[in-house]
Nucleic acid binder design. Sequence first.
DNA 1: TTTGCCATCACCCAAATGGGCGATACTCTG
DNA 2: CAGAGTATCGCCCATTTGGGTGATGGCAAA
Lengths: 208, 208
Amino acid sequence: MITRPIRILIVDDHAMIRLGLIGALSCEPDMEVVGQARNGCEAIELHAKLAPDITLMDGILPDRHGVEITREIMEKNSTAKIILVSINETGEDVRRALEAGASGYVPKSSEQDIIVEAIRCVAAGTKFLTPILRNRLDEQNTIVGLSNREVQVLRLVAKGKANKEIAAILALSSDTVKTHLTHLMRKLGAADRAHAVTLAIEQGFLRM
Amino acid sequence: MITRPIRILIVDDHAMIRLGLIGALSCEPDMEVVGQARNGCEAIELHAKLAPDITLMDGILPDRHGVEITREIMEKNSTAKIILVSINETGEDVRRALEAGASGYVPKSSEQDIIVEAIRCVAAGTKFLTPILRNRLDEQNTIVGLSNREVQVLRLVAKGKANKEIAAILALSSDTVKTHLTHLMRKLGAADRAHAVTLAIEQGFLRM
DNA sequence: TTTGCCATCACCCAAATGGGCGATACTCTG
DNA sequence: CAGAGTATCGCCCATTTGGGTGATGGCAAA
């Protein structure tokens, strides 16, 4: 039985990672790397031109986030199959990726056989997450859950804005800002706004 | 004229990076990868056993930081030549690496020819930094300069400690803590303690 | 030696912060 | 429909924060 190889597009700005992925896949006779992109623009362009079966997408690209690129590609081509390969491994990151339409998520720390497994899974039509990420995602949905407004406020706090300034920027009363802050600090288990920033960065809420 | 190949040890916990580096070096006939380590322990052990000419060391390893491993290897063998290959690219990171005895520092985002160039340079006995890192290092020493005490205070601020608590922990008067905070915020250009945390994390003062 | 930086502490004071309690209104889900 | 979560605002109040100024002693470089 002859099967066509799985055609793969690699998106990553790090030359070393691209080489590593190519190396990892070169052992698999049924997989073929058909293209490489080093930023979001190239990724969108090449995806349209090559129509790969699978796209391996880095989480952080020079121009935009991998998740945004994923969303944009999925909007244009809802049958695309994209696997995020990212350094970030928090439940929040995974949630965002899946919400944007990714079919899989593997940490960059994975061994090559995990990548290969993920590609086979996704090519076959199944979503793929490593067990650890699956757990993080579950915790994510129950334990941590900042509302949009709370994240907005937190971002401004991280930039050193005072409550009054935040109120002005978001067109709110500063009492409301205080309420949001009280809530988000409680949710994060933070002692004060500085601690909230630390925890939020650790947990991946604040992308720079 | 026959020259012996440059014997290289690769230290990185990411399988993909190891593969990428091997791929990058496989094109160079005068370089030979003689070993791979995936954590600090293995690195120290393998370095002693193999005595490589060059060690490519990841900045972040599962057990300890690459910089610490570098320091430990250099203490045992002051002729070792270690090149840090790290995601972190701030002047502060580079400063720490060189201070620990590293002979070079290249960002993980480098193209393969940069790595190869770095290896040749260092093997020939010259220190190697990419021009951008060289600049960052220079700025580092002039512009940003938190004192030890200030960094200590900042670390505790990031953990959500109030001035009074910090004073207790460091055995100081809380007025002194306030003074340190005033100074470090001025140096960082921060509006308040939360902003200081953001800036410090961005600039690599706060390693987790 | 003078100058600068660090570390330490003190006092004053206005402004910001954080907690608690309560209230309204909207949306979504069971 | 009831309940939960979100978003909005208000008030009270103790505590914290941040800025300013000033002072001492140590240490290192110019």
